[in-house]
């Protein structure tokens, strides 16, 4: 007897552990399991091998910073979807054709339209766009960009880096010394205070909302 959608989601959650990111719904009867890219193949294997899932369709969404790849499966006549996120800088994820050979045409279509590379896809020839477009045109791929407008970037980046929206130029520093002003005791000079601000940014997911790269200490776009 086929497992129901809730049971399958629970299996995914349990088997994938930290790689199970979240659960949501496209519609009341269409649950979505958001999984890490590294666990995509394991998730597909679980669905196909344990739940007799049949791959139906692949949807790709370009949200500016990342691609969302949504794999729709039919299980006993009901739809369950797997979603994974691919950073646009990488634009690459594993092909599921080792598990579902029939997914090749869907992956080739996404590759044509969004210029996303599916590692392990044996036939990567263009499917629906002209051959001469390959590596040149991807009609549904948008330019890299997030919600922070160009003119706002310095303000946002400086706040994430220092907790304030301006740094102190040497001329102002000299003026402050000449005017015998006390030290500025803000997040600019208090690392423990800055850590609190950055913790808040992570907690409310402000960092992912704006597309902030903590390692490079700047926006991704």
């Amino acid at each position: 007897m086929a497992l129901d959608q809730i049971e399958i989601i629970n299996i995914l959650r349990s088997e994938l552990a930290d790689n199970f990111v979240s659960e949501s719904k496209i519609s009341p009867n269409n649950p979505v399991a958001h999984v890490a890219k590294s666990a995509l193949l394991d998730a597909v294997k679980l669905l196909v091998e344990r739940s007799e899932a049949r791959f139906c369709m692949l949807t790709s969404v370009d949200n500016g910073l990342d691609f969302e790849l949504i794999y729709h499966f039919s299980i006993g006549g009901r739809i369950l979807s797997l979603k994974t996120t691919v950073p646009k800088e990488l634009s690459e994820l594993p092909s599921i054709t080792d598990v579902v050979p029939g997914a090749a045409s869907a992956e080739r279509e996404v590759c044509d339209l969004f210029k996303i590379n599916f590692q392990g896809l044996s036939d990567s020839r263009p499917l629906i766009v002209p051959y001469e477009w390959r590596d040149k045109k991807a009609p549904l791929r948008k330019p890299m960009g997030g919600i922070v407008a160009q003119y706002q970037k310095p303000t946002v980046e400086t706040m994430m880096q220092h907790g304030q929206v301006f740094t102190m130029p040497s001329s102002v520093k000299a003026n402050r010394e000449n005017l015998q002003l006390p030290e500025v005791k803000t997040t600019m000079t208090r690392p423990e205070a800055l850590r609190e601000l950055q913790e808040i940014a992570r907690e409310v997911k402000f960092d992912s909302l704006i597309g902030y790269d903590w390692q490079k200490r700047r926006l991704r776009y």
């Binding site: 919600i147 946002v156 706040m159 997040t187 808040i200």
Partner: peptide, 23 residues
Amino acid sequence: EGFSCCPDPVVTERLQREMWLAL
């Protein structure tokens, strides 16, 4: 000691009110 940007009522609040209010 330890104040951050207020944060500004033009950029930060429009991006995410939750972050703005928490700061």
